[in-house]
Design a protein around this nucleic acid. Structure first.
Lengths: 176, 176
DNA sequence: CTGTGCTCTTGAATGGCAATCAAGAGACAT
DNA sequence: ATGTCTCTTGATTGCCATTCAAGAGCACAG
């Protein structure tokens, strides 16, 4: 319940900052992106960021959360393709954000916020995939480790520089 | 060819700094370990480190290289166990250094030195494993992607917090 | 139509850090 | 004893995240 018009605009500017942050983080990496740089890109002062976000880490967590939400929404509306196509689709969608994957893991060890976002991503993904693999009649005891394994392979593919053929060959090995 | 006694001692102190660095990096992580902290632990001034290493990143690269060399030496003198045992062995040996894995990948994107160390590690590992898998009569075309895949799974296991059962179940899925 | 309070913005610190600089101290070779 | 090389250090620089203190714009109550 906004007490004045300003608060309505609040979210607009917050989103602008988030957008700038995402672009800068992607282009230069977390460490090499200063808040001053993000602020300049967003057309505000560095201090202003602190009104909307508690810290650089929370800003990053917020950016990541947005990406994850968008991904999960898209992922839920898909499902019924072949396993192989699903995996390749996940890889191609996350491709643009691949620079974040390492940073998320790095920050997860020192930042609770990011660890939470990271964990809940893995959980959501596992939940969706489990239903899918049950339909495909995979042995129930194998489902959980298989999901984890596929997750690791996807992360690996995204974290390393591979060409299309290499990706395809690796994904082929994942078929049961 | 040392021109005086000091230069003989050189490597001793350099090694002391490297040792301190390894311990501090492992305990606190790369970002949260300042050169001052390493220096204090090694009983020198922060500036002294710069005489032995060009930068914090090079110091880190040196630490990583030492670990990798030790690992590769141990790995080469093993080999003839079952595939499963070899994979589990690699995981258990790298376990103590698991905190580094993420940092190596993170730094690889901005630091040439670390990217090189990282790349040569993957290469060495692939080379050793290829010979091993040929002996085991794996189809030659499948060997390369398989090695890469196993590498990604090992990295994944080390990067995430898993209990023994989860690890074993995942490694079981890797058997051909 | 004025004062009070809320949302938002900013300039100016603060403290920490990696990296550089300039000045030396100690050991050796001549 | 002198110059040179190895090594060490205090002081400095410049960047950065974060905090602080002061305000500006707006809305609503009286």
């Amino acid at each position: 319940m906004p007490s004045n018009r300003q608060e309505v605009e609040n979210n607009v500017k917050k989103q602008e900052i988030r957008d700038s942050a995402r672009q800068m983080f992607l282009a230069f990496g977390y460490e090499k992106t200063s808040l001053a740089k993000i602020a300049k890109h967003a057309g505000v002062t560095a201090n202003t960021i602190y009104w909307y976000f508690k810290s650089k880490e929370e800003l990053f967590a917020s950016v990541v959360e947005e990406i994850i939400q968008a991904f999960l929404t898209a992922f839920k509306t898909r499902k019924s393709e072949s396993l192989r196509d699903n995996i390749l689709w996940v890889i191609s969608v996350l491709e643009v954000s691949r620079a974040f994957i390492v940073t998320i893991h790095e920050k997860s060890r020192t930042s609770q916020v990011i660890a939470d976002v990271h964990q809940s991503f893995h959980d959501s993904l596992a939940e969706i995939s489990e239903a899918y693999l049950l339909e495909k009649e995979m042995k129930p005891t194998e489902i959980k480790p298989y999901i984890t394994l596929v997750g690791f392979v996807i992360e690996g593919i995204l974290m390393h520089e591979l060409d299309e053929k290499e990706k395809n060959d690796i994904v082929s090995l994942l078929e049961v």
